[in-house]
Design a protein around this nucleic acid. Sequence first.
DNA 1: GCCAATTACGCACACCGTAAATATT
DNA 2: AATATTTACGGTGTGCGTAATTGGC
Lengths: 317, 317
Amino acid sequence: MNLQQFRFVRETIRRNFNLTEAARSLYTSQPGVSKAIIEFEDELGIKIFERHGKRIKGLTKPGQAVAQVIERIMLEVDNLKRVSDEFAREDEGSLTIGCTHTQARYLLPRVIPAFRERFPKVRLQLAEGDPVTLARMVLHEQADMAIATETLARTPGLATLPVYEWEHTIVIRPDHPLAELRSSAARAISLEQVAAYPIVTYDRAFTGRSSIDAVFAKKGIQPDIVLEAIDADVIKTYVDVGLGIGIIAGIAFDPRRDKGLIGLPAGHLFGSHTARVAVKSGVFLRDYVYVLIEMLAPHLTRDMVQEAVENSGVVEA
Amino acid sequence: MNLQQFRFVRETIRRNFNLTEAARSLYTSQPGVSKAIIEFEDELGIKIFERHGKRIKGLTKPGQAVAQVIERIMLEVDNLKRVSDEFAREDEGSLTIGCTHTQARYLLPRVIPAFRERFPKVRLQLAEGDPVTLARMVLHEQADMAIATETLARTPGLATLPVYEWEHTIVIRPDHPLAELRSSAARAISLEQVAAYPIVTYDRAFTGRSSIDAVFAKKGIQPDIVLEAIDADVIKTYVDVGLGIGIIAGIAFDPRRDKGLIGLPAGHLFGSHTARVAVKSGVFLRDYVYVLIEMLAPHLTRDMVQEAVENSGVVEA
DNA sequence: GCCAATTACGCACACCGTAAATATT
DNA sequence: AATATTTACGGTGTGCGTAATTGGC
C-alpha cells in the first residue's frame, strides 16, 4: 500500500475511469497505473473498479467506500505540503481570491494595500466570477478563498463565515423625480414608487439580485428592468446617462466619488444581506489567509476560522 | 514522501522520541528510520524534530503541525484496511468490547447470544477494566468500543452515545431492619438511614461510585464503607453473609435470581446515571459494530452513530 | 479494426540492513 | 563509558518504462 496507488485510484476516478488519461495526467506509463491498481486491489482483497472484461466502468461498492477514504487521505497529504511550506517560506506563497466584481472593486481595495505591505512576497490573484462558479473554484482548489453573498453558505464542503452585512442602495440622477426623497424621508420610498421607473440592476446570478426579484414577485409587482449588468460601475454609468434608476449594493455607492448621483438606502425594501467568505473545509490554510480574513472582518478571529474549517462549519451571521 | 515515513514519524513521537525504540516496534532497522525521517524533513524543507546535536528531544513547531496531519492520514490509512475487510469478509472479523464488570455480567448477556447468532464468525473479546482504562483502550484502538458510565463522555477523541439510564439499588438481607421499608414506602428511605449501617459498595473507580461519595459528602455524612469491590456479585455475597448493606447498580439486582436478598430502589438518593457506549471518533466501524450498538439500544440507529463518529460528537442523553 | 487494459520483461534505483563513525549524557 | 543518532556501503526487491498481448466496442 502506498501513496502512489492512492493517487492512481483518485486520478482514474477523476478522469472518468480512463486509465490512459489518468496515467498521462500523472506523467507516468499506463501499464504502471494498471499494475499498481491491481496490486492495490489484491492487497485489500477487494475490487475497487467495476470491470466489463478489461474495460473499467465505474466503482464497485467497496470501491466507493475506499475512494472516500482515499480522498480524505490525499487531502491531508496535500495539507502536509502546505503545512511545511508555511514554515519553510513563512511569508511567501500565492493567494487566489475568488470574488464577485463588487467585492473586487469596493471591498478588497480597503484591505489589499495593508495586506501587500504585511506580506510583500505573497503573489495575489483575483479571480472574478459568479457565486456558483466561485464556490466550485474553492471546492476544486483553484481559489484559496471566495467572497460573495449568495450560494456560498449552502455549498457542502465549504466552510463559510459572515464578513459584513449590507443593504441595497437605489441610485438616481439629481434631476430624477425621486430625488426629492433624498433628505429626510428617504426611508419612506415604497416599492411601488421604485417600480414606476425603468430599472438598471445586477445580472441574475449576482449580489442579491434574487432577493430583489423575490420582493417584487411577492408584492405582485412587475418591475421594468431595462438593463442587467454584473457590476455597479456599469449600472451607475447607465443611470447617469438617464436609462433609469439603479439598484446596487450599498457598498458600491460612495457619495464622494459618485458626485453626479444620489443614493437612497433601500434596506427597508430589499432586506439585509450577508457577504460571506468561503474556504474549503479540511484544508490547511496559510497564515496569511487567516490574516487577510481578519483584515476583512476583525470579528473573524483565527480561532473562529480554524474551527469552521476543521468542522466544515457554516458560521451563521 | 511515502507512508513509511509517516509511520516512522508517528512511532518516534509515540515512543517518546526514541528512534531505537520506534525502529524496534516497527520491526525495522534504526538507521533506516533515521534516514527516512531525514529525507522526509528534507523533502518538506522543514525540521520535524528538535535535535540537540544528535539527540532527538521533541517536536519543532512545524513538526507539531505535521504530526497532527500525519496522525489523521494514518487514521484514514487504517480505515482503508477496515473498509476493505468489511467487504472482503463481510461478517468475519473480531470485536473487542471494553466494559466494566457490571456491563459484562448484566447488560451484555442480554444481547450477545443474538449477536452471535447473527455474526457467528465474529471473534468476540470482552476486556474488563475501569472507565478510565476503557477510554484509553478505545483511544489506542485496543478495544473497538467501550461501555461504562463514568468518564467516557468527557474523553476527547471519543464519540459517545447514551445506552440506558439507571439508578442505584440498595441490597439488604430480609432480616435487616431496613427490610420493613420493602413494600410501599421504599422510596422514603433516607440517606441518614442508609448511613446508619455498614456499607458494601463499588470500588472508587467504578459505576457511579463517585456520585455516592458526592451525595454523602454534600450532606456532611460520613458513611461507614466496610468493603469495596469492583463487581456486584461480590458485593451481594458479602451482604448475604451479613457484612452490611449493599449499594449496587440497579441492573445488577434481579429479584428472581437474588432470592435471598431484598432490593430497595435508591434513585431518589443517588440520582440517575447514564451508561454510554464509546467508540473512537474518525474510525471506520465494521457493520457488526453498528448492529451490536443498535441491539444494545434500539434508539441508537446506524445513522446516529455514524454521525457521532464522523463529527467526534458526544450525543447527550 | 481501433482503442483500452493487462501481461511480460528488463533495468535502475530506492529501500533497508549491517557495519562503522560520531555525538550526547 | 554507555547510549543514541547519523554516515557509509552493499545487496535485494520493487517500481516503472517499453514492448507485446488480450479483450471490448
